[in-house]
């Protein structure tokens, strides 16, 4: 019988800003390479029964803040299930939507949105947008890796007691003032990285699938993917980053 990975794609139509579908393609391609079937379920406001624990991987893409309250209301009853889920299972939340999983979001007009409180962060909407490349190191599923991508920052994040997902080598990260990028909580990745992140960094995609294999007590696939294209891309982007003009505070001075 074919082994199936179940993916929950949260609010794919509502949260759809930066080619985020690419992350799903990356997961599907890597799973397929290992001989697994992938079943993607789209979760939206009309989904009557949503149980995070039905899935092996959850992905929540970046969205417009305009829709956050509607989504927070939908997910609030599932808050505890989501917290239990990320203790052992992989979840990827990218871009602006990271703020939705935090405690509060202070909007530019001074109004406030109450987040899900799954991670302990405070978020502030910025008056202006900041877009830039992003380069950092991180560890996931026990593996150290270098990550590259870009970010479109509309919301600054202050992580309180949470652990950062990455340590910046270049970029704005959570708020341009610290060395931190994103948050990791259990197996949940909350990152500002776009790109799409799993396409540009297939080494993270491999680790997510490795973790799914462990969770499902399947043997961990030991034949590595050919990442030469992405490694060349990363190298070329690092050349670009090293020569670029920037007004960001140096990482060493943060």
């Amino acid at each position: 019988m074919e082994q199936t990975i179940k993916v929950g794609w949260l609010f794919n139509n509502m949260f759809n800003l930066h080619g985020d579908r690419g992350n799903l393609l990356a997961i599907q391609a890597e799973a397929k390479r290992r001989g697994y079937q992938v079943e993607v379920t789209q979760i939206n406001l009309d989904t009557e029964t949503f149980n995070p624990l039905d899935f092996d991987f959850l992905f929540c893409p970046p969205g417009e803040i305009e829709h956050f309250e509607a989504v927070a209301a939908y997910l609030e009853p599932h808050r505890n299930e989501l917290m239990a889920y990320i203790e052992t299972r992989p979840m990827l939340v990218t871009g602006t939507t990271v703020a939705l999983f935090g405690e509060t979001i202070k909007r530019d007009d001074q109004s406030e949105i109450i987040g899900l409180g799954i991670i302990e962060i405070e978020a502030r909407e910025n008056h202006a947008v900041y877009g830039d490349d992003l380069y950092y190191t991180c560890q996931y599923n026990g593996k150290e890796m270098e990550m590259i991508g870009s970010q479109i920052q509309m919301i600054d994040l202050d992580i309180k007691e949470e652990s950062p997902f990455g340590r910046l080598k270049y970029g704005y990260g959570n708020n341009g003032k610290t060395k931190f990028e994103g948050v990791i909580s259990g197996k949940g990745i909350f990152t500002n990285t776009l790109g799409p992140v799993l396409v540009c960094n297939p080494w993270l995609t491999e680790e997510i699938i490795n973790l799914i294999e462990v969770n499902k007590t399947w043997p961990v696939w030991d034949e590595h993917r050919d990442n030469s294209l992405e490694l060349k891309s990363q190298k070329s982007k690092m050349v670009h980053i090293n020569k670029k003009e920037t007004r960001l505070k140096r990482i060493s001075e943060r």
Partner: peptide
């Protein structure tokens, strides 16, 4: 404008 940055993610739409 500065900073110049790499963005091809819209191609995935």
């Amino acid at each position: 404008f500065v900073p110049h940055y790499i963005n091809t993610f819209y191609a995935f739409d």
